[in-house]
Simulated scan of single mutants.
Amino acid sequence: MDSRDGQGEVGEPVGESLPGLLRAWRSRVNPRRIPGLVSAGRRTDGLTQRDVARLTGVSERWYRELERGNEARYSPDFLDRLSSALELSPAERRALYLRAVGRPPALGVVSEADRVAEVDEVLLQRFLDGQAPNPAFATDLAWNVIGYNGPLMDWFPWVAPQANQMKWVLLEPEAREQLVNWEQDWARPLLGQIRYERAHHPEDEALRRLERDILTESPAAQEMWGRREMAEHSHGDFRRLRLPYHQGREVAIRIVALRPMRSDRLRVVVLLEVDEGGTGP
């Protein structure tokens, strides 16, 4: 079988080909629902190559080359128009980008209404409460706290809805006392996370304000920012705390950092207290 149909020469699956995907996606779109397309006299259901070319503003020849699997410099604007014409889901749009240009689409700007819709607050709070006795909290993309459980409040009394995790860690004097090895283990990795998210969400205004506020208010943060370090997350990291809740006793924790499958703009963090060796709960 031809490897472009999803099988290698020795029968090993290599994934669905771009031509096969495009043909399948075209065939499921009902042209009768699209204003301006002539549906009378059609021999088959679905869109034709000519239909897709018209809907995306390219020549039929140009689109045919894409459906044949021929490589070209397909622009994000064209691929987004194609995703819209074929009524692709977010996962299908990602597959289109990966097959056509070898990389996923850029992360788009999400409206505030869409962000709210992504969070089931009741379910999130039940999850956080279920982590007790371990402290747990959730933040939005810019590290504003949107939920927490009772143990988290015991450990960090400053927490409140819309309190900002990054601003507390990087700007509050008490954080330097309570977070052991503050610069190396906390400040630099978290600044690296801000830089990472800013690179992936360059148009997000809340992230832009967070970066500006922290660098304006903290010369130490500004100096560390100049190292241009980047970190994706803190999952699995071993850290130490010295909190009033523990009467100043040093406590070792491991960080569990999660993101729901429905959104990359929500993060959940659980703090697991571990023994002095950091090998278990």
Results as ranks from 00 to 15, higher is better:
139 T>N: 05
79 L>T: 04
55 L>D: 00
19 P>D: 15
69 G>Y: 02
77 D>A: 15
91 A>F: 05
201 H>P: 11
242 R>D: 04
137 F>W: 10
126 R>I: 09
178 Q>P: 05
73 R>K: 05
277 G>S: 07
77 D>G: 13
216 T>P: 02
28 R>S: 04
181 N>P: 05
90 P>Y: 11
252 A>N: 14
281 P>L: 04
279 T>R: 12
139 T>C: 09
26 R>Q: 12
223 E>W: 10
245 Y>M: 06
246 H>L: 10
104 P>R: 06
101 V>M: 08
85 A>L: 06
153 M>S: 15
125 Q>G: 09
244 P>L: 08
168 W>F: 11
267 R>L: 02
171 L>W: 07
18 L>P: 04
77 D>F: 06
112 E>T: 02
104 P>D: 07
189 P>W: 10
127 F>E: 03
100 A>N: 03
133 P>G: 00
140 D>F: 03
80 D>G: 10
102 G>M: 05
217 E>W: 07
80 D>E: 13
182 W>M: 08
132 A>Y: 00
7 Q>K: 08
160 A>P: 06
102 G>R: 03
261 M>V: 13
144 N>F: 06
75 S>D: 03
12 E>C: 08
275 D>H: 14
281 P>A: 07
140 D>S: 10
99 R>Y: 09
242 R>K: 13
84 S>I: 11
151 P>V: 02
47 L>Q: 00
157 P>E: 06
87 E>M: 08
265 R>W: 07
231 A>P: 01
118 E>G: 00
275 D>S: 08
68 R>T: 02
71 E>W: 09
249 R>M: 08
195 R>A: 15
135 P>H: 00
133 P>Q: 01
44 T>M: 01
29 V>R: 05
45 D>N: 13
139 T>A: 04
252 A>T: 08
260 P>A: 02
136 A>W: 01
97 Y>S: 07
268 V>T: 09
232 E>Y: 12
230 M>G: 06
19 P>T: 12
14 V>Y: 04
194 I>A: 11
41 G>D: 02
13 P>Q: 08
272 L>R: 03
269 V>W: 04
178 Q>A: 04
1 M>I: 07
265 R>G: 09
71 E>F: 11
177 E>F: 12
122 V>M: 06
140 D>C: 10
221 A>T: 15
238 F>M: 14
250 E>I: 15
109 V>Y: 09
231 A>F: 15
230 M>C: 14
143 W>K: 02
90 P>C: 13
46 G>C: 01
261 M>C: 08
260 P>L: 01
254 R>T: 03
260 P>F: 00
207 L>M: 14
203 E>D: 15
257 A>C: 12
227 R>P: 10
261 M>W: 07
127 F>N: 03
279 T>Q: 11
83 S>I: 03
32 R>H: 13
277 G>T: 05
179 L>R: 07
119 V>D: 05
261 M>N: 13
35 P>M: 12
229 E>F: 06
152 L>H: 14
180 V>Q: 09
154 D>Y: 07
72 A>G: 13
148 Y>L: 10
56 T>R: 00
71 E>I: 13
236 G>W: 01
87 E>P: 06
171 L>G: 13
239 R>K: 15
58 V>E: 00
57 G>I: 01
227 R>E: 12
137 F>I: 08
102 G>D: 05
168 W>N: 00
215 L>K: 13
126 R>K: 13
26 R>C: 06
22 L>T: 05
105 P>V: 00
53 A>R: 01
12 E>L: 12
